[in-house]
Amino acid sequence: MVKYILKRIMYIVLVFFLLSFLIFMIYGMVPVDKAAEAARNEITANKNLDYNERYEYWSAKYGTDGNKLEQYGRWLGVYKFSDGSRHGLLTGDLGTSRESGRPVSEEIVEPMKNTMLLNIISTIIALAITIPLGIFCAVKRGSKRDVGVQVGTIIGYSLPTFIIAIVFIWLFSVILGWFPVSGMQTPGYLDWSPARQFWDKMYHLSLPLIVMTFTSLGGMTRYVRAAMIEALSMDYVRTARAKGLREKVVIYSHAWRNALLPVVTLIIGWFLGIFGGSVMIENIFSLNGMGQLYYNALQQNDNDIILSVQMFYIAISLFGNLFIDLIYGVVDPRVRVNR
C-alpha cells in the first residue's frame, strides 16, 4: 500500500512538473514584458534614468534574462537568479501581483478560503439532495415520478450555469428581492460584530450556493441512479430478497454499499471540477474567490497570479485523482490499490 502510494506520488510529481513546464512555455507566448514595463514606468517617473540599464536591472530582478529554460528554472526556484539568489514556486515564492504589488501567496489566501467554503457547502447540500433522490429514482425505476425526475435532470444538466444564474437572479433578487444580486458583504460590514459579519456573508452567499447546488443536481442524480440500478440488478440483491430481508435492508445495506464506489469517484471528481467551474459563479456574483481572482488576473495581465492559480488548479486535480484511487480501497475492500 505504502509502496503504491509512493509510486503514485512520484508519478504525480512528474506529471506536475511536466504540466508546469508545458504551461510555462505556453504562457511564454504572451507578448508581455514585465521588465520593459517596469523600466518604462521608472523612466516616465524619472527622466534621468537610462532605459537599457533599468531594463537590465528589472530583467535580472524578475529573472526574465536568459533563455526560456532558465526562466522556467527560476520560476520553479531551482535555477539561480543573476544575483545568485534562488526563489520560486518550490520555495513558496509565487511572485508578486502586478496590480496590487503584494506577494501572490498573500493575495490568494482570502479567495481560496472563500472558494473552499463555497464548494464544500454546496457539495454537502447537493449530496444531501441527490443521493436520496437518486436512490429513490432507481428503486422506483420506470414510474411516473422517476420519468419526471429524469426529464428534470436532463434539463438541469443541459442548462449552462450562467443561464441558471441569470434566471435565479431574476427570480430571487429582482422579482422577489430575497437575496442581493451580487457581492460578498454589505458595505460597511467592518464595523460589525464577527457573528453579524459571518451571517451577512452567508446571506450574500446564499444565492450562489443555491445556483451551484441546482446546477449539480441533474448530473449527480443521474449518476447515483445509474449506479444504484446497476447494483440493484445484481444477483446478490435477488439473493437478499429471496432470503426475505426487508426491502430497506436490501436497498441500503446490500445495493447502496455497492453503488457507493462509482458514486464516490463521481463526488470527488465533481468536487474537483467545481474548482475550475467556480470561475463562472464567482464572476457572475462577483465573489472574491479563486475563479474571480483568475478572471481578473487574465483581464489585467497579472502574470504571476495567472500562473500560480493555474498550477493550483492542476495540483488540486492531480492530488484529487490520487485521492480517488486511495478512497477506492477504503470504500470497496475488494479493490486492492497496490495491484
Binding site: I26, Y27, G276, V279, Y294, L298, Q310, Y313, S317, N321
Partner: peptide
Amino acid sequence: AIPFLPFAMML
C-alpha cells in the same frame, strides 16, 4: 488533469 475552463481561458 488540466482543469478545463481555466486552461481554455488562458489559451
